[in-house]
Amino acid sequence: MFRTVIWIIYFIFRILFLTPRLIKVKSLHSQNRIEEKDKLVYSTARSWGRDLVKQSGSKVKVVGEENIPKDKSVLFVSNHQSNLDIPILLGFIDRPKAFVAKAELSKFPLLSTWMEFLNCIFIDRGNARESLRAIKAGIKLLKEGYSLVIFPEGTRSKDGKLMEFKPGSLKLATKSGAPIVPVTIKGANEIMPSGKLAIRPANVELIISKPIYMDEDIAKDSNALTETVRNVINENLNRD
């Protein structure tokens, strides 16, 4: 419990400490200095993610980072095990990226502002119209050269095992043409299990698989594509 309290205090004070940098980000945005703004936001997010993982006492091993296509936007498709999945992906995959995140995160002061500047898309899963809006926004971002992360299970796994993907979860790739990069997170459920606030150290493995391009035959069948991506993640998750 002591580690959890320290982590929460660090989380709050780190967000507050970054306020002057957030002001600079807003200034760059207002001046339309988008490239400078994006670099500052990404470097801040990457450092923030790594520091939050470090404060949990956990260690992350990255496998397969060379599989990420260079110089093009991609759709990272990841399993979802823990509240720390976003910091893990931000901190340990060296590629600017935004997230399709649940609408509840938009209610957190300062954090939600950083996520907006990171180009994150908030989605209300119970609102079909909002879901469609989010898909269109994601397609636009991918076509503009920004990479995205989605958690197609829709929520965190309670036992670390891979759940079924939500129908249509890979439309962002099929409609934008961006390659899919399957990502497997192993061990993060030990840091902060679903339904619990306690934080404990864990050894996490982040496995980045080879990309699937939308001009491949498999991409012509959305059901087969979904099953293929899910199988890649599941095989990595169950491999010793």
Rank of each mutant, 00 (worst) to 15 (best):
M1E: 12
T4G: 05
Y10H: 14
F11G: 02
F13V: 14
L16E: 08
F17S: 13
P20Q: 12
P20S: 11
E35Y: 05
L40E: 10
L40A: 08
V41I: 12
G49D: 05
R50M: 13
D51F: 06
V53W: 01
V53D: 00
S56W: 00
G57L: 06
G57F: 04
S58N: 04
S58R: 04
V63D: 02
G64M: 02
G64C: 05
E66Q: 13
D71S: 12
D71K: 11
V74I: 12
L75M: 09
L75T: 08
N79C: 07
N79T: 06
P87K: 07
F92V: 07
D94L: 07
P96Y: 03
F99I: 07
A103G: 03
P109K: 11
L110M: 12
L111R: 05
W114D: 10
E116T: 15
F122Y: 15
D124I: 06
R125Q: 12
G126H: 13
G126K: 14
A128G: 02
R129I: 13
E130L: 14
S131M: 13
S131C: 12
S131N: 13
S131Q: 14
L132R: 15
L132K: 14
E144Y: 01
E144L: 06
G145Q: 07
S147D: 03
S147G: 05
S147Q: 04
I150D: 05
I150L: 08
P152I: 08
E153A: 10
T155S: 14
D159H: 11
D159K: 10
L162C: 10
M163Y: 11
F165N: 04
K166Q: 15
K166L: 15
P167I: 13
G168M: 12
G168W: 13
S169G: 08
K171S: 14
A173I: 09
P179V: 07
A188M: 04
E190R: 13
I191L: 07
I191W: 01
P193Q: 05
P193D: 03
S194C: 01
K196W: 00
A202P: 01
N203D: 14
D217I: 07
I218G: 04
A219Y: 01
E227L: 13
E227I: 08
T228H: 11
V229H: 06
N231I: 02
V232D: 00
I233Y: 02
I233S: 04
N234V: 06
N234G: 03
E235V: 11
